[in-house]
Design a binder for these strands. Structure first.
Ligand code: FES
Ligand code: FES
Lengths: 144, 144
DNA sequence: ATAATAAAAGATAAAACTATCTTTAATTTA
DNA sequence: TAAATTAAAGATAGTTTTATCTTTTATTAT
């Protein structure tokens, strides 16, 4: 569904949001551990998210990644777009050069509805929403 | 959504079904051309489908790939399973080791519905269904 | 200033996926 | 039987994705 990088990115955003209450910052090691991701790979992804302003960071002692109030309003869709691009929005399920109603592949209309629901879901759910959920202790970012 | 191999496989199955009416056979070149896929790569995929009995083949002059009545009842889901495996059925969207209701990731229940509809769709649609559609001339397997 | 910390950046490597080319084996026709 | 045809199989190569390691830069505290 999503690339590995994108999976990690979503988990990292949720994790950092969770941990960065009252101006706390989280280091890359803690993020990697808390999301069961390889540290150096996750570091790359965090750089990406940081460059794209989905998350903030400070270097040096007591530095790390954090999110402000505005960042918490980020939708899953924004993360997916930042990491995987617009494929879900634009690409044909069967790989036709362009996906269109005028030149549809055989499965176009069957997938139209499914894609619509998928997009609606990732656009309507923000990091803050998942944050609240995690607080309940009923949801997990890893399960080794 | 699906791997490139899987996209080609689905297109190939629809293409061969279309062309293999009244005991005709289709060569790998025609399949590659008709689905806008690289010939040698498609040959590998056809070997796979053939080994898994989703399609049949005969070598030699007038040989090629074909489908019988039973083959036409193959669902999209069967093709996806043959090429990409059970990922859509079993894997966690965020990459947790196991996807379960007891240890769900934050997006588990949001995606549950979407995955259910996706699976229902690919299980309920057979090659024969798409075959009929293509006959209408309103659907395409390539659009260069 | 200096030392310690932590992210950013760069370089490299391993694995998976996609693609191509060549050889072999089976089948048909003549 | 010989030649032609076509899928099957094997070997190789390119690309992208995933992952790791090293160096640099910014920041803080002493
Ligand atoms: S043309 Fe294939 S999904 Fe739209
Ligand atoms: S646990 Fe993540 S989708 Fe089920």
């Amino acid at each position: 569904m999503f690339s590995k990088s994108c999976e990690y990115a979503i988990k990292a955003m949720i994790f950092v949001a969770q941990k960065s209450k009252d101006d706390n910052r989280v280091g890359i090691k803690a993020i990697a551990k808390g999301t069961d991701a390889p540290e150096h790979f996750m570091a790359k992804i965090m750089q990406d998210l940081s460059r794209r302003k989905l998350i903030h960071s400070v270097k040096g002692p007591n530095g790390g990644f954090y999110m402000d109030k505005a960042d918490l309003k980020t939708s899953i869709a924004s993360i997916v777009k930042a990491i995987d691009g617009e494929v879900i929005y634009t690409d044909c399920v069967l790989g036709l050069k362009v996906c269109s109603e005028k030149n549809p592949c055989p499965v176009h209309f069957e997938f139209k509805e499914i894609k619509k629901n998928l997009i609606k879901m990732i656009e309507n759910n923000t990091i803050a929403d998942f944050n609240d959920k995690l607080d309940s202790g009923k949801f997990f970012l890893k399960n080794k």
